[in-house]
Simulated assay, not measured.
Amino acid sequence: MRITVTVDGTGYTDEVEPRTLLVHHLREKLGKTGTVVGCDTSNCGACTVHLNGQSVKSCSVLAVQADGGEVTTVEGLARDGQLHPVQQAFRDNHALQCGFCTPGMIMQSIDLLADNPNPDEEAVREGLEGNLCRCTGYQNIVRAVRDAAGHMRPGAGPEAEQVADGERTTTGVGGDA
């Protein structure tokens, strides 16, 4: 089947087998290797991307289901050489160890913050329940998400507009925000 999808602001038209998972299309066809294949059962969340502004586990979505859609991967978050505030907060708060789960954690965190721009610790833990980390005790991840929330609130700085102006629908792709 022929599909057309926008990934990280760039349009692609490709022939795909109907059974091809979005995660495999992103990695193997488009070279978006930041989207990690973890469990292939949608349990770990390492493959989380945004599809039309919503976080999805790309191992549970067929590429044909993304036809006509807009996908944002972890590679599409940085702008003008600056990390997205969530990426920066993960770095600043040492919210990773091996890094395998980090792309999915970051993508889910952005979605969480779009829904709740000021989450408490419990809300962060609940919002990240579908994303597993085998290396950390989650404390630094929670700290990073709460730190990013502070930087992304309206008036917090130039990057705040990514959420304030509609991170939920634009997902920070291209010049949409």
Rank of each mutant, 00 (worst) to 15 (best):
G53E: 05
A114T: 08
K32D: 11
S109Y: 13
V71C: 11
K57I: 06
G104P: 01
V36R: 13
N43I: 15
G45C: 03
L112E: 09
K32I: 06
L83S: 00
L22G: 08
A114F: 07
I110E: 11
Q87S: 06
A95Q: 05
G99Q: 06
Q82P: 00
A114V: 03
R27Q: 12
H25M: 14
V74Q: 05
D40M: 03
Q54V: 10
T41E: 15
V56S: 01
S42D: 15
C101V: 05
Q82W: 06
C59K: 00
C101S: 14
R27D: 02
Q65T: 11
C44V: 05
D115C: 15
A66E: 01
L22F: 11
V86I: 08
T33V: 10
K29S: 13
L113A: 05
R19V: 10
I106L: 13
D40C: 07
D40R: 09
H25S: 06
V61C: 12
C39F: 05
H94V: 07
Q88L: 14
V64P: 00
F90C: 09
G31V: 03
I106Y: 13
L112A: 08
S60L: 11
C59I: 01
V71N: 10
L83I: 01
G68C: 09
L30F: 01
D67V: 09
P18K: 13
Q65E: 13
G81S: 06
Q97Y: 09
S60H: 12
F100A: 03
V23T: 12
G68L: 10
V74P: 01
M105K: 04
N43T: 14
E70N: 11
I106Q: 13
V64R: 07
V56E: 02
T48W: 02
A95Y: 12
E70Q: 14
H50R: 06
Q65K: 10
T41K: 14
G69H: 02
Q97A: 08
A89R: 10
V61L: 14
L26G: 00
Q87G: 08
K29V: 13
A46V: 04
C47W: 03
M105T: 05
L21N: 11
V56W: 10
V61M: 14
L96Y: 06
D111Q: 06
V37R: 03
R91W: 15
T73Q: 11
V74G: 04
V64Y: 04
L112H: 07
N118L: 13
G53Q: 03
A46T: 01
Q82K: 15
D111N: 07
A78V: 06
A114H: 11
C47F: 00
D115E: 15
T73K: 00
